[in-house]
Simulated assay, not measured.
Amino acid sequence: MSETPTYLCDVCQEKEALGAACSALGPVSFQYCGECAFDRREPEAMFEATLDLVGEDVALHVKVAKTIVDGKVLTWDEWLAARGDA
């Protein structure tokens, strides 16, 4: 009998994912651990895609989303400031 594979969270890349869920920022699914899912964290690539497609003026559901950069949890506005785009 084969073992069920385990996956790391696509956001933090540290904890075991609980399962896949749709991103709040677009029509794509990622593997989320409980902490990242509960805290509305998204992979940084989704922030980058949103910036490319929409620009800096985003809807509230994007502003309350978070991502992780170099181990630090950032909101949309904090992420923009860290990039120098704000």
Results as ranks from 00 to 15, higher is better:
His61Thr: 05
Lys66Trp: 14
Leu51Val: 02
Thr4Asn: 10
Glu14Ile: 05
Lys72Asn: 09
Gly71Arg: 02
Asp77Ile: 05
Gly19Asn: 09
Asp10Ile: 05
Thr4Arg: 14
Lys72Glu: 15
Leu60Lys: 05
Val62Met: 08
Trp79Ala: 14
Ala21Tyr: 12
Lys66Pro: 05
Pro43Trp: 07
Leu18Ala: 11
Asp52Gly: 03
Ala81Glu: 14
Val28Arg: 12
Phe30Gln: 01
Pro5Ser: 02
Glu16Ala: 08
Val73Cys: 07
Val62Lys: 08
Ala17Asp: 01
Asp39Thr: 09
Met46Gly: 00
Val62Phe: 14
Trp76Cys: 00
Arg83Tyr: 13
Ala17Leu: 05
Val73Ile: 13
Asp52Ile: 01
Asp52Ala: 08
Ala59Met: 10
Ser23Tyr: 03
Leu51Thr: 01
Val58Met: 10
Ala59Val: 10
Leu25Pro: 01
Gly71Asn: 07
Asp77Thr: 10
Lys15Gln: 15
Cys36Phe: 07
Lys66Met: 11
Cys36His: 06
Ala37Leu: 15
Leu25Ala: 01
Ala59Phe: 04
Glu48Phe: 04
Val69Trp: 02
Tyr7Met: 08
Asp10Arg: 03
Thr50Val: 14
Asp57Met: 12
Val62Ser: 09
Arg41Cys: 13
Ala49Pro: 00
Gly55Ser: 06
Asp77His: 07
Glu48Gln: 13
Asp52Asn: 05
Gly19Tyr: 03
Glu14Thr: 09
Gln13Val: 04
Val28Glu: 08
Leu53Trp: 14
Ala21Glu: 14
Ala65Phe: 00
Val69Asn: 11
Val69Met: 14
Gly19Phe: 01
Leu74Ile: 01
Tyr7Asn: 10
Gly84Thr: 04
Ser2Asn: 03
Gly26Met: 15
Gln31Ile: 00
Val73Gln: 05
Leu53Asn: 12
Gly84Cys: 02
Ala65Thr: 02
Val73Ser: 08
Tyr32Trp: 13
Glu44Arg: 08
Cys22Val: 09
Pro27Arg: 11
Ala20Phe: 14
Glu14Leu: 03
Cys12Ser: 07
Val73Arg: 03
Val64Thr: 15
Ala59Thr: 11
Pro43Ala: 14
Glu48Tyr: 05
Thr6Arg: 12
Glu3Arg: 03
Gly71Cys: 06
Leu51Pro: 00
Ala17Glu: 02
Val11Gln: 06
Thr4Trp: 15
Leu53Gln: 11
Pro5Trp: 14
Arg41Asp: 00
Glu35Asn: 07
Gly71Pro: 09
Leu25Phe: 10
Phe30Trp: 15
Leu74Gln: 04
Val28Ile: 08
Thr4Ser: 12
Leu60Met: 06
Ala59Trp: 02
Tyr32Phe: 15
Lys66Ser: 10
Arg40Cys: 15
Ile68Ser: 04
His61Asn: 10
Asp70Ser: 13
Lys63Leu: 12
Ala20Leu: 12
Arg83Gly: 11
Val73Tyr: 06
Glu35Trp: 00
Val28Pro: 02
Leu74Asn: 01
Val58Lys: 08
Phe47Ile: 10
Cys33Val: 08
Leu18Tyr: 00
Gly34Val: 03
Glu44Asn: 05
Leu53Lys: 08
Glu42Arg: 02
Ala20Asn: 06
